[in-house]
């Protein structure tokens, strides 16, 4: 009797968990599902994915994470879980493509984006541009006083006055990878070491920087331009400006990265994944995407949020995004060598 009761309980437990374990895999619409790994801020992604769900009936399963999803994707290469990767950074996408974690995509919809901002095989495509700028608090520092080049951040006179993100932040990694291409390894390592020493705070993400600079905790910080736009749109603490660094004839130019989407190799729902990428490239979605995140759409026919400065108005760094991919993993090692930890509190 005891045996039978226990056996019954154990079997019930196993069946129950197996059922629960499998439920997320089943879908009720019949159109199937698509699994999205996203390193992007969830509040920008969710409205788009919701309208995709409504229009197509395809269920979207979203996992919001950060740039470490790149590693998760590589780790899962023999057991692919996701179909699509929404990245903040073209460098990470190209890195995945070189590792053969992405699959080529022949969809004609991709043609709408200039070929500088997508992979030759279509495995990833850029959706919006993000420029690295210095956000500053106008109450604490004037435009004239602000440093105009990134190299100036190594000057001890800025000690304790500005904020940067941790070294592992996707935008930071790509930025360093681009600087390597221009400055070479030694100068870049030196820059990282000095900036780390001067920084008043090293924080997890750019959201922390814009809020703290807006509130006057620090005079300025290194962010992507749309964080400046977001802070500008806040009801309070919005007296902020932005410096596009390294302008002028001698300047190396501001670094422009692209946020984009990659098609994963061997994902469980390939056709739905292609449908989602096509959807994200529609002008309507591009506009919605750029307006809410305040980035600049890469599709030239889509108008950007009026608050954002178009790319054509400033000098940009002459580095092709494709070239960053190969340097991406190396850049992380270089950042650590320079003395900036990839993660907070190391």
């Amino acid at each position: 009797m005891l045996k039978r009761t226990m056996l019954l309980l154990v079997v019930t437990a196993i069946v129950l968990t197996a059922l629960i374990g499998c439920t997320p895999r089943q879908t009720n619409t019949g159109k199937g599902e698509v699994v999205v790994y996203s390193a992007r801020n969830e509040s920008f992604v969710l409205p788009l994915l919701n309208s995709f769900e409504q229009q197509t009936g395809i269920k979207v399963r979203l996992l919001t994470g950060n740039e470490t999803l790149v590693n998760k994707i590589l780790e899962e290469r023999n057991n692919v879980q996701a179909d699509v990767f929404l990245s903040n950074d073209a460098g990470a996408l190209e890195y995945l493509r070189l590792a053969e974690a992405l699959s080529s995509n022949q969809s004609p919809a991709l043609k709408i984006i200039d070929e500088t901002y997508r992979a030759d095989d279509g495995s990833w495509v850029g959706l919006s541009a993000r420029t690295r700028v210095l956000i500053y608090n106008k109450d604490l520092i004037s435009e004239e006083e602000m440093p105009k080049t990134l190299w100036e951040l190594t000057d001890p006179k800025w000690s304790g006055q500005f904020m940067i993100t941790r070294g592992g932040n996707g935008s930071m990694v790509a930025h360093v990878a681009a600087l390597r291409a221009v400055w070479g390894d030694d100068k870049t390592t030196e820059w990282i070491g000095a900036v780390r020493k001067n920084a008043g705070a090293v924080v997890n993400g750019h959201g922390d920087i814009r809020r703290s600079v807006g509130a006057g905790e620090y005079a300025f910080g290194l962010v992507n331009n749309y964080y400046f736009h977001q802070q500008l749109s806040e009801p309070t603490n919005n007296n902020v400006g932005a410096i596009y660094p390294d302008q002028g004839e001698q300047g190396i130019g501001a670094f422009v990265n692209a946020a984009g989407v990659g098609l994963l190799n061997g994902g469980p729902n390939r056709s739905n994944a292609v449908a989602l990428i096509d959807f994200l490239l529609q002008p309507d979605q591009q506009r919605a995407f750029a307006y809410t995140s305040m980035e600049v759409p890469l599709n030239p026919s889509v108008e950007s949020n009026p608050i954002a400065r178009p790319i054509s108005e400033y000098t940009t760094m002459a580095v092709r995004l494709q070239d960053i991919g190969a340097m991406w993993a190396d850049a992380k090692a270089l950042i650590e060598r320079g003395g900036l930890d990839l993660d907070l509190g190391q």
Partner: peptide, 21 residues
């Protein structure tokens, strides 16, 4: 510990797993 921007073995392990090291 992590919300308050401190670090211990536990938070360090969490980040190492996150970066799949």
């Amino acid at each position: 510990v992590n919300m308050l921007r401190y670090s211990t073995f536990t938070t360090a392990i969490f980040y190492q797993i996150g970066s799949f090291d």
